[in-house]
Design a protein around this nucleic acid. Structure first.
Lengths: 125, 125
DNA sequence: CAAGTGTACTATAACAGATAGTACACTATG
DNA sequence: CATAGTGTACTATCTGTTATAGTACACTTG
């Protein structure tokens, strides 16, 4: 369910956050679903419980999940909307890269193809 | 000529690298041009000479510039080509984000508009 | 009560980024 | 030659982030 890359630059706790949000976006995790517990997932991924706690804490701060102490941690009803809103920033990132590509003389068609390919590939999956 | 953001996540030396390459892409810095010296630029930006040395060292490793000890540091003839080739990675980044946008339910048109807007904005400048 | 949950806390290690300071070698210029 | 300005090398230190280890406590369900 989760895949950790220990050698990349992105910290583990960020990978957890990203992948959890991704699971919500793709509908694998729905409102009310229980997230894997800190202990079990930390064992499964061979990471420290504190690292996981940090990731879950951030997701909670964003309103993506809530904790029920003694019970578990669950996806909120707003999770999908909240995660979706974060995509506006991604659009800004695309614009930033787009300007660089233009400055580099990369034709608009190539940038367009990249986005198109991404949508076609994602749609298949 | 250079703008440093001390509060963002991107390290200073990476900002120097990015901005130098950007200046080459936009034609502000051409083959044979001298780069600002380690001492003067470090004073101007209020950063440590070592930090600048690190940035310049990486640019040199990439073949973007060469150092002439006792004389200065200059943009190479291959600089524009080398920097341009790095743009392939940016296209991959766009694909990655594109897939996320698709998963988030952002319509293809919106992603397309973002790229289009970037190219139009850059072309004006 | 027992097991499983979240939470809090301290301590430690490792690493990256940045700074400070010093010293040396080279080149162009006056 | 002397000087100023250039690149280079090196050590040491500081800071913040990331990750780990270990312990302890509180809560809920069965």
């Amino acid at each position: 369910m989760f895949q950790i890359d220990r050698f990349g630059r992105t910290p583990i706790y960020e990978q957890i956050i990203d992948q959890t949000e991704r699971l919500i976006l793709t509908g694998v995790l729905k409102a009310g679903d229980q997230l894997p517990s800190v202990r079990t997932l930390s064992q499964e991924l061979s990471i420290n419980p504190n690292t996981l706690q940090k990731a879950y804490g951030e997701l909670e701060r964003r309103g993506v999940c809530v904790s029920a102490p003694g019970n578990g941690r669950f996806v909120t009803g707003d999770a999908l909307r909240i995660v979706g809103e974060g995509m506006e920033e991604q659009l800004e990132e695309i614009k930033r890269i787009g300007r660089e590509l233009c400055a580099a003389g990369i034709p608009f068609e190539r940038a367009l193809e990249a986005v198109k390919a991404a949508y076609e590939k994602e749609a298949k999956v």
